[in-house]
């Protein structure tokens, strides 16, 4: 977002202004005569921040954690933001809700580098590295086309038999999948 705005500002030859920490860019009249505000995802006072999500997985994470079905929560999502660690990243901030480790670990499969920060009074009080759980339910598709989970409407269930290298055992057809076999549902 920041990079895009800077590009735009350069393009329009605008001046950079700053007001209460929010950077603004004046776009000349012939191009519309408006302020472009550089929005960042604002800090939260209490809640959970999931950071360093691989951008392809950000919206999948929302789905897995059922955040799209929580009208009671204020959720900010940023994607394709620049990251020193992984180039581009996704970030999800959930105000007023503290995500438990069990819930968060569900996303470890699709966002292995993600970190979970618990925020209290604008400060990070707890930082957790995600860990792939022992059982994975309903996130991964079984790669065996003749497995019952691919024939009838049966939610998938896997046991993680090894984390490194990653190996999943289908509870139904008993086939073992490696990382390269994993397809998300």
């Amino acid at each position: 977002m920041k990079q895009q705005n800077q590009k735009k500002a350069k393009l329009f030859g605008s001046r950079k202004l700053s007001f209460r920490g929010i950077k603004n860019f004046w776009v000349p009249k012939k191009h519309g005569g408006v302020f472009l505000k550089e929005y960042k995802i604002s800090a939260i006072s209490e809640g959970t921040v999931i950071d360093h999500i691989t951008p392809e997985a950000t919206f999948k994470v929302i789905e897995i954690l059922n955040l799209d079905k929580r009208p009671d929560l204020i959720i900010s999502v940023g994607n394709n933001m620049s990251s020193k660690q992984i180039g581009k990243k996704g970030i999800i901030k959930i105000s007023g809700s503290f995500l438990g480790a069990d819930d968060a670990n569900k996303i470890a499969l699709i966002a292995p580098n993600a970190t979970l920060n618990i925020i209290k009074n604008f400060k990070v009080t707890e930082k957790k590295q995600l860990k792939i759980p022992e059982k994975i339910e309903g996130i991964v598709k079984c790669f065996n086309p003749n497995c019952i989970t691919n024939v009838e409407r049966v939610p998938t269930k896997f046991t993680v038999t090894s984390r490194d290298p990653l190996k999943l055992l289908c509870a139904y057809c008993e086939r073992r999948m490696k990382r390269e076999d994993i397809i998300l549902l």
């Binding site: 003749n146 049966v154 139904y172 086939r175």
Partner: peptide
């Protein structure tokens, strides 16, 4: 049953 895992289900 001809489908793998059908009996566990």
């Amino acid at each position: 049953h001809p489908v793998d895992g059908s009996v566990r289900y």
